[in-house]
Design a protein around this nucleic acid. Structure first.
Lengths: 198, 198
DNA sequence: CGACAAATCTTGACACCGTCAACATACATC
DNA sequence: GATGTATGTTGACGGTGTCAAGATTTGTCG
């Protein structure tokens, strides 16, 4: 290993992921191209194809990182049972919105059409996303067992609807339909009241 | 006008819109290219640029059609005050989901990132979308005046949150995250209960 | 150590894409 | 009939994802 003009790059796979994250932060997801990414790393256009099946594979890997970050935060939020559902859910909503808006591009990738509808999601990505949601469902169930939430409600449905609502709000912001963050905060409180007092 | 090998196409603008709708229905929005569309109409690659500023302009025009269709349906739904909010909202939800899933590609265009975040929406599109939402807000206000909805709630916020929830569900379906339509029906009923009994 | 296989990286090529510039044709109007 | 405008054309530029074939390095086994 001459260390200087090395033919093999070392850990191109990881470097690709890191650089891709930078590009996405700079120019959004549509600004990410395989060729441009290769250029930035001073590597040939097709080098990445030895580490990812295709562009979809790379995107899935980036989305996976997002899910791991979110899961870590989620674990903290779900680790102990709340005293008041209303306060907890407001806290949860804020954390969710913060994640979705601060890592907007990651969020769009994690739940967006390019991966889930068109390019098939990687099996590992599928599992990560499923686990994240599942841990939320189980949290709702634990809350029901402690009588924090009415037990006659279907835990899965409750989790789906409450998450779907948050997801809807986040999409409205990230897609540029609602841009007023204050409105969103207020909407968030409204939806909290709906879920918590029911 | 020789009628046969006519140089001028007649009403290319409308034909472009019609054919684009077909392409979108066949191959989804990403399958629509300016060049491919021109080919299908037997016209040169840049002919469309005399009728739309650029691809974004064409997409906006398609989205406008979607908004007009939705507004027509909306007018019917909002024309008279309901007797029961719960029944009405269930009816409304179903209509919204039907529209969003049956015209999935149109829906994604109407509320999707490509237009609102990246390519700036046309002024006319902006107005159409604003009007549609505004008519919903005014409906909520009328319901409040008739004491069908608690008056202390902010009508705008209520409209935003309820619509945001429906939008969230639709995105989950259209983006391929939830594919089970039965689950969605059930989720829909759950969210109805949240809004109607509050 | 040498040979051979696997991993990794390269260039070349293909088929797309959006869109600008320059030019050609048809139509409308004075 | 001349002239301007609307509409159509081809040519070109730079961009994209990705496949095939060849080059080079690394890992493995006798």
């Amino acid at each position: 290993m001459t260390d200087k003009n090395k033919y093999h790059h070392g850990d191109l796979q990881q470097k690709l992921l890191n650089e891709a994250a930078l590009v996405i932060a700079e120019k959004s997801i549509d600004g990410l191209s395989m060729r441009g990414l290769a250029d930035r790393l001073g590597v040939s256009r097709t080098a990445a194809y030895h580490h990812f099946k295709d562009k979809n594979g790379l995107l899935c890997a980036i989305a996976e990182d997002g899910f791991r970050r979110w899961q870590a935060e989620l674990d903290g939020l779900l680790s102990q049972l709340p005293e008041s559902m209303e306060i907890w859910f407001e806290h949860f909503s804020r954390a969710y919105l913060d994640f979705a808006t601060e890592s907007a591009e990651h969020y769009d990738l994690m739940f967006g059409r390019p991966i889930w509808k068109h390019g098939q999601p990687t099996e590992s990505l599928r599992k990560l996303s499923y686990d994240a949601f599942q841990s939320y469902v189980e949290f709702v169930e634990r809350c029901q067992q402690k009588n924090l939430i009415a037990e006659e409600q279907n835990a899965l449905r409750l989790a789906q609807v409450s998450w779907g609502t948050l997801h809807g709000l986040c999409r409205l912001i990230n897609d540029g339909i609602y841009i007023d963050r204050d409105s969103v905060e207020d909407m968030c409180k409204n939806s909290v009241r709906l879920f918590a007092t029911n």
